[in-house]
Computed example of a mutant assay.
Amino acid sequence: MTLLQEIERHLKRSGTAPSVFGRHAMNDPSFVRDLRNGREPGELTIARVREHIRAATPRATDAR
């Protein structure tokens, strides 16, 4: 799964707007739009975004 696919899945599940996600994850509200238009993120960016998604995704154990 590509980073963009992971982001799109997260956006759908969380109901987060792409610009809000970009602002929170990368301090760049155009980040998702740029990825959709072919931007190729580096390894550090990929790691940062994946960590943001992981931290923002509630776990089943968190609901207890």
Rank of each mutant, 00 (worst) to 15 (best):
M1L: 08
T2V: 06
T2I: 03
T2A: 06
L4W: 02
L4M: 00
Q5E: 15
E6H: 08
E6G: 07
E8I: 07
E8S: 10
S14K: 08
S14F: 06
A17C: 02
P18T: 08
S19Y: 11
S19E: 11
V20R: 11
F21K: 11
F21W: 05
G22R: 04
G22S: 01
R23A: 07
R23Q: 08
R23F: 03
H24P: 00
A25H: 06
M26R: 13
N27F: 11
N27M: 10
P29S: 10
S30F: 10
S30M: 10
S30V: 03
F31Y: 15
V32A: 04
V32H: 01
R33S: 11
R33G: 07
L35Q: 00
N37P: 01
N37F: 04
G38A: 08
R39E: 09
P41N: 14
G42D: 12
G42V: 06
I46L: 05
I46G: 02
I46H: 03
I46D: 07
A47K: 14
A47M: 12
V49S: 07
E51N: 13
E51L: 15
H52E: 10
H52F: 15
R54Q: 14
A55H: 10
A55C: 05
A55I: 06
A56Q: 15
P58N: 14
P58E: 15
R59C: 08
R59Q: 13
A60N: 06
T61K: 09
T61A: 10
T61E: 15
D62R: 00
R64M: 08
R64W: 08
R64E: 13
